[in-house]
Design a protein around this nucleic acid. Structure first.
Lengths: 261, 261
DNA sequence: CGTAATTTTGACTCCGCTCAATTGGCGTGG
DNA sequence: CCACGCCAATTGAGCGGAGTCAAAATTACG
């Protein structure tokens, strides 16, 4: 809701600006600047002033479309840029020597991808599109350069990295000390919260990932995930129809999350 | 907390002075500068030049001793500084509503603590000393400031944050898709590798943490950890005596780690 | 429209947990 | 110095939650 309102006002502001969009070269006509992007408040430019935002425009080097099932990058790829998701869902995953895959996260519009490559110069994980996606390509050399000019950007980059660490610790807690039901409840409530920020329904949504991928993320087998969905439905917490989920009883789910047994 | 503020003003005064370290008051005589610290190559100043190292000295503006069992910081504490461990081992842990604790890591000399506070302004976890410890206090405002002057420091800070994310993903893989034996093998081999970097024995060491803490970190119960130690000993992989461990067969441990079953 | 992929459900198994008792190590105080 | 108490670690017995294997149902996609 909030995001929608911001988006609209931003558009209006821009259309009354001295340099209307229509006068820009055609190539850019359908492209959205950071300043006009409805995702900016949850993306890298979060909290920047107008002038700083303008400087940021130079950061978005290009946009890239990634088809469902394709990889934005793969483990071992040379690290050159981080990516801001504009459209679509991704999963990131590590693969262990043998076939085993560990999904390390699901990312949605406004979130950043590729941070795992900063430290070593090569990506550590695969980022695969769960549906047709579009990302902004932010060459990391530029990010560093502009960070030096805009302390707010520097601070925010640090924040994003730090928050990713905190998020990962939360997942470690989930994997290390929660039972299967709790894990799924936490997962669903987390999705719900992130959907709200994007102005989408908190309780009615479409899972872009398979049971297997959810299971991998939660340290469970797909059969267990499927059984839990059925159980939650039987308990009146959810209505599940394949990938479509409706949370029928948020409070109930939260109780499952908190329940020691 | 009060001490931090006092120190900050003291530091500013000092940083404006152009006096060489040698002329500083005796209080500093027994203190080790970054340039002279044997941990510098695995700590924040990694890869910095001599001149940059000198600038870094201003960063460490106090040292702090933490007794075994005491907390360096606790979840919820205001975030003001990051810490570089000079002496001793720490654990970091999250605690869940009820009594449940999830150990998120074990840190040793040369490693940084407190990165989890950058994003939110408050620490997310507890950092508790597993033995008598000493840390360098690096006020984060100063870190940011000096980062702007020394791009190498900025780059390295980003690297450290990114590598922490990659490390956490490794733990997620461990918790999400490895069996108990593999987890303990990975844990021991990881410790061994980090000990080597510090010039300690790769195969003969003293665990500073309890079976319960190891279990929490690995998503296992202490009894399971204890049983695994006994089993590894029976299999000729280890010699275990309470907290003292000798790895008798590194190759064997690596095979346990890789084994699908 | 047909084939492959995904999901659901059941039956059974087993790894790691729970509960419980015992041993061992270590610091404290008599 | 030893005795005591406390905490950590070990070990056993039995259980249960999630995994495995298998088959059927449903859906997605070329």
């Amino acid at each position: 809701m909030q995001a929608v309102i911001d988006f609209q006002s931003a558009r209006r502001t821009q259309s009354t600006a001295s340099l209307p969009t229509a006068s820009l070269p055609n190539a850019r006509k359908f492209e959205v600047t950071c300043a006009a992007c409805n995702l900016r408040e949850m993306c890298l430019p979060q909290g920047l002033s107008g002038a700083e935002l303008q400087r940021m425009e130079n950061l978005v080097y290009s946009r890239r479309k990634v088809k469902r099932g394709e990889a934005l990058f793969r483990a071992g790829d040379k690290f050159a840029a981080i990516y801001a998701i504009r459209v679509g869902f991704f999963k990131t995953a590590l693969l262990h020597g043998d076939g085993r895959e560990q999904v390390t996260g699901f990312q949605m519009p406004g979130e950043l991808l590729g941070l795992d490559g900063i430290g070593s110069g090569a990506h550590a994980s695969n980022a695969v599109a769960l549906e047709d996606c579009e990302v902004c390509v932010l060459p990391f050399g530029l990010v560093e350069e502009i960070s030096r000019e805009i302390p707010g950007l520097q601070r925010h980059l640090n924040s994003v990295l730090s928050r990713e660490i905190v998020r990962d610790h939360g997942v470690m807690m989930l994997l290390g000390s929660m039972r299967a039901e709790e894990r799924l409840a936490v997962f669903l409530l987390n999705l719900s919260k992130r959907f709200i920020r994007r102005g989408w329904s908190a309780s009615d949504f479409h899972l872009r990932m398979t049971r297997d991928e959810i299971g991998s993320y939660l340290g469970l087998k797909l059969e267990t995930v499927s059984r839990l969905f059925s159980k939650f439905q039987a308990d009146g917490l959810l209505e599940v129809n394949q990938k479509h989920v409706r949370i029928a009883d948020i409070g109930g789910l939260e109780k499952v999350m908190g329940a020691v047994h």
